[in-house]
Amino acid sequence: MSGDVQLELWLHEYKMDALSSVLKEQGTTVEKRMQEMLTDLYVELVPYVVQQMIRASMGAEYAAAQAEKEAARKYTAFCARENGERSFFQLDRTEDILEVAKFLRRYLREEQGSGIAALQTSAFARMEPVTAERYDQLLALRMETPNKVTGVFDLDFDKQKVATVDAVDGWKTWSMQDVSAAVYHAYRKNYLRPEQYMSRLLERLEGRELTSAGHLSARDISFADEITEIDSLLDFTLKPTSMWTRCSARTSAPARTMIP
């Protein structure tokens, strides 16, 4: 990407001091005044059509640089539930369940009061508040392009649960106590590679998943009967873990939902 070119000018220091003193009284500096004069010279001498072409080229380069910068950015999203209220945050870097687990262990062991306050002063302190709509966008991106959004977490400090979503397996929910205990056991062996600690954490959490309303994954749902077509509608019965839901849908989008 192109950039500015530095010009070097020479003026005796006595003359420079005198000029600076006069311009200071006028509320400006030699550098600012010279910049203005150089800009005026450019506008006066360079044909307008050339100026337009240069402006377009600079705009295109800037847009390309911004697109490249955005493509390289990674995101992590948090939903924190406390006192019946939900708060949403975005962190512009990669985080995973291992780091969240370490935070939860410190939080539970230190018996801190507000979970959200603890979250905002933890290793995730640089996260910024976002809207529910932005959180949903990041959640969708997590499912579509997991390399872009590397983690989406739901921390329920009221019910002491933590959930994370994977593009393949969907949502997984555990109790915060189980996650705290799992990360403790993961780090009982020293000098391992980061991926080994992650593996030990997940092994410890295997079989301890909780069914959480709003966080059902594909493994929690099965079809009770065959799918049939009635009047251009697909008729099928979904069988979640804890409820029966009757749904009729067109091939492109749900048409109606009935819960007996």
Rank of each mutant, 00 (worst) to 15 (best):
M1K: 03
E8G: 06
L11E: 04
E13H: 09
K15T: 00
M16Q: 10
D17G: 00
S21A: 12
E25W: 06
Q26N: 03
T28F: 05
E31Q: 08
Q35W: 06
M37N: 07
L38Q: 09
T39A: 11
V43T: 11
E44Q: 09
L45H: 15
V49N: 12
V49H: 15
Q51T: 06
Q51P: 07
S57H: 15
M58K: 10
G59I: 07
Y62F: 13
A64T: 11
A65C: 11
E70W: 10
A71G: 10
A72F: 11
R73L: 10
Y75T: 07
A80M: 14
E82C: 04
E82S: 05
S87C: 13
S87Q: 14
F88Y: 15
F88V: 03
F89P: 15
F89T: 03
D92A: 12
D92S: 14
E95K: 15
D96P: 12
L98C: 14
A101W: 13
L104H: 03
R105C: 05
R105L: 09
R106H: 12
E111A: 05
E111G: 02
G113S: 07
G115D: 03
I116Y: 05
A118G: 06
Q120S: 09
S122A: 04
S122G: 02
S122F: 02
A125V: 07
R126S: 09
M127F: 09
V130T: 05
E133C: 04
E133G: 09
E133D: 10
R134W: 09
Y135L: 10
D136I: 11
L138N: 01
L139A: 12
L139V: 11
L139G: 06
A140N: 14
L141H: 11
P146T: 13
N147L: 11
K148P: 00
T150P: 01
T150F: 03
L155W: 01
L155H: 01
L155C: 08
D156N: 06
D156I: 03
D156F: 04
Q160P: 01
Q160L: 08
K161V: 04
V162Y: 01
D166R: 02
G170R: 00
W171E: 02
W171V: 03
W171T: 03
Q177K: 03
D178R: 00
V179D: 00
Y184V: 12
N190E: 13
Y191S: 09
P194H: 11
E195Y: 12
Q196V: 07
Q196N: 08
Y197P: 01
M198I: 04
S199Y: 08
L201R: 02
E203Y: 09
L205R: 03
L205T: 03
E209T: 04
A213M: 06
A213G: 07
A213L: 11
G214K: 05
H215I: 05
H215N: 08
S217H: 00
A218T: 08
A218M: 02
R219C: 06
F223M: 10
F223G: 04
T228L: 07
S232D: 13
S232F: 05
L233H: 12
L233I: 02
D235T: 07
T237A: 15
S242P: 00
M243A: 11
W244D: 10
T245K: 10
R246A: 14
C247E: 14
R250S: 13
T251Q: 13
P254L: 02
A255S: 14
A255D: 15
A255V: 14
R256V: 09
T257E: 13
T257C: 13
M258P: 05
M258T: 14
